[in-house]
Simulated assay, not measured.
Amino acid sequence: MHLALGSVSAQHPSARPGSPAALRALSLNIEPGEQLAVIGPSGAGKTTLLNLLACALQPEHAAGFTLDGRAPWVMAQRERQALRAQLFLAPQVPPLPPRQRVVTAVLAGRLPQMSLAASLRSLFYPSDIPAAWAALERFDLAEKIFERVDRLSGGERQRVGLARTLLSDTRLWLVDEPLSALDPRRAEMAISTLVDEARARGVTLVATLHQVDRALAHFPRIIGLRDGALVFDLPAAEVTPALLARLYESHEHELSGTAPMPDQPAAAAPVVMHCR
């Protein structure tokens, strides 16, 4: 899927009137089948950019953003919804119903392409258990296929959300901070799987990452954002330490990057003692 932004600005949905734009005059051209990483300090506008690309956030000038040459916010709502069905947004914290089984949560990646009757039926009778198992296995989570979501750790839930991506029959993957809750071994496994699968399928992949070293190692193209503006758009081999220092000025601790916390079981609910 081809994406084009022409001097696009956008306001965060929760921003107060008069506050600075979250994205400022941003111009990008992303060719079909490209894989690129978006890096930058906290508050740079990375998640806002993904929401805009997912047609979940309207830019200030509707015609400034196009997908395959079509401006989503100039279309009728039904046409825009049909266009959204061709892309998949994986948020940092996947919205997984706590009582849902993992197999159902993963197969939900196919919901945009399913009829209403088929989607309702899949809630009770998972339609393709082997496909869900295979996707979970790519993220070292196949043994959890019949667990309830609320019994998973934060890192396991994040991997369920990534496995769901592999089940989506879409041409654009937008992945927000996919490694934030993963230990180093599983982080390497996850990012390798996403990039390799996107390349094999010819899917356009845009991922935001705090882990600069992994972005440089796995993505051929790197976008540097700061304060909602483009700092650089370069092949990974041309991103120098000097450019990174400029991008993360006053945020050096984010550039050095502490290792992500390993997967841990979700904290148990506190025990409340009642005195009589």
Rank of each mutant, 00 (worst) to 15 (best):
H2G: 13
L3D: 04
L3Y: 12
V8E: 10
S9F: 02
S9Y: 03
P13R: 10
P13D: 09
P13Q: 09
S14Q: 15
A15Q: 11
G18C: 05
L28S: 08
I30R: 07
G33H: 08
E34T: 06
A37K: 00
I39P: 03
G40H: 02
K46P: 01
T47F: 01
L49D: 06
C55K: 03
A56P: 00
E60A: 12
E60R: 07
A62R: 12
G64E: 01
A71T: 01
P72L: 05
P72T: 03
Q77P: 00
R80L: 11
R80N: 04
Q81C: 08
L83Q: 12
L87F: 09
A90H: 00
Q92G: 08
V93D: 13
P95L: 09
P97F: 06
P98T: 10
Q100D: 10
L107Q: 08
R110M: 12
P112H: 11
Q113W: 09
L116D: 11
S119V: 00
S119L: 01
R121K: 13
R121A: 14
F124V: 09
F124T: 03
S127F: 02
A134C: 02
A135T: 00
A135E: 01
R138E: 12
K144L: 13
R151W: 11
R151V: 05
G154R: 01
L162K: 00
A163N: 01
L166E: 07
S168K: 08
D169P: 04
S180G: 08
S180M: 10
A181S: 14
P184T: 12
M189K: 15
A198Y: 02
T204F: 02
V206C: 05
R214C: 01
F219D: 01
G224V: 07
R226K: 13
F232V: 09
D233H: 10
E238V: 00
T240F: 06
Y248H: 05
E249D: 12
S250G: 00
E252N: 02
E252C: 00
E254L: 10
A259L: 15
P260Y: 08
D263W: 09
Q264D: 10
P265K: 02
A266E: 12
A267D: 11
P270T: 14
V272C: 10
M273F: 15
C275S: 14
R276D: 13
